[in-house]
Design a protein around this nucleic acid. Sequence first.
DNA 1: CTCATATATTTAACATGTTAACAAGATTGC
DNA 2: GCAATCTTGTTAACATGTTAAATATATGAG
Lengths: 162, 162
Amino acid sequence: MSDRTPMSSDKYSDDLGHDALLPHNTRRSLPIALLRAREAVMAHFRPMLARHDITEQQWRVIRILAEAGRVDASEMADKAFILAPSLTRIIRSLEERGLITKHKDADDGRRVLLEIAPEGMRVIADVSPESRAIYKQLETRYGRDRVEVLLDMLDELATLND
Amino acid sequence: MSDRTPMSSDKYSDDLGHDALLPHNTRRSLPIALLRAREAVMAHFRPMLARHDITEQQWRVIRILAEAGRVDASEMADKAFILAPSLTRIIRSLEERGLITKHKDADDGRRVLLEIAPEGMRVIADVSPESRAIYKQLETRYGRDRVEVLLDMLDELATLND
DNA sequence: CTCATATATTTAACATGTTAACAAGATTGC
DNA sequence: GCAATCTTGTTAACATGTTAAATATATGAG
């Protein structure tokens, strides 16, 4: 009787596992597995977004503005999971392209309020149906219930430190 | 009686789900969930890697060389999941720092063969025990069995297109 | 053998990630 | 009211991600 869990498969066994000087098997590491999974998912969306001439991050920003209305930069950084310096550049680019507008908060001069512009709404209307269709196809192929389970497991991993 | 799956929680319910013009709820999307989970995991490793003055990608490269011996650039790109242009820059940087060596393949002049240098082995010896310790702690906190389940689910997601 | 094609790597150009430092506007405590 | 401190956003500098194009070498058809 082995000490392996039922889910672990021998084809992934790590021959170097006994040598503490070497790292553990690259093929079964969470960081790379998460990266690969994310890349596989984004591969479905990226060509479509490229046809509409927006990046993944730009899409996240205008999509959140369409969902939530007016939000400040910090809130956007939280929701879109984009670091402040990146967000500064993305906001500049989106504003130059006329997809969003930017105002100073009257109550707090440090804050920058963001709002979607009509041109941005047009992009939302164009991209959203395609995006939903791609996501639904993905859900169907992977299994709708399993997507939910996976989302729960990922959320728990992301909030381990809270 | 609702049509929700048992795993989905009401706090994530999407009020915009009926409007096809709007994207679906940002909080339950796979791309962002994968990003958040990956960031949470890397947050455990990054400070340690920074103390040793290497990036996550540089660590992946020398770690694979320590595991696999001599590999060419394409194989490295596959294993480390790094795009060719990024890999070119990372190789240049690692070679300049003396952590790896680079040779032309005698049989195929296009190929670049990579090998870890003694200085690189020193980094492996320094970083590896710390990396393993961090990973083990993570496994313990999340649950060793659940990590295996998660890895299997992520692998399936990553190979949906094959 | 040679031309066309395919493969491996690099370069270029731009977007984003990452950390540190900075600037400007709020808050707090005295 | 004001100096110390905190918070928000920006800038800087460097590393990586992403796509397209260029370069060099191999391979295959004829």
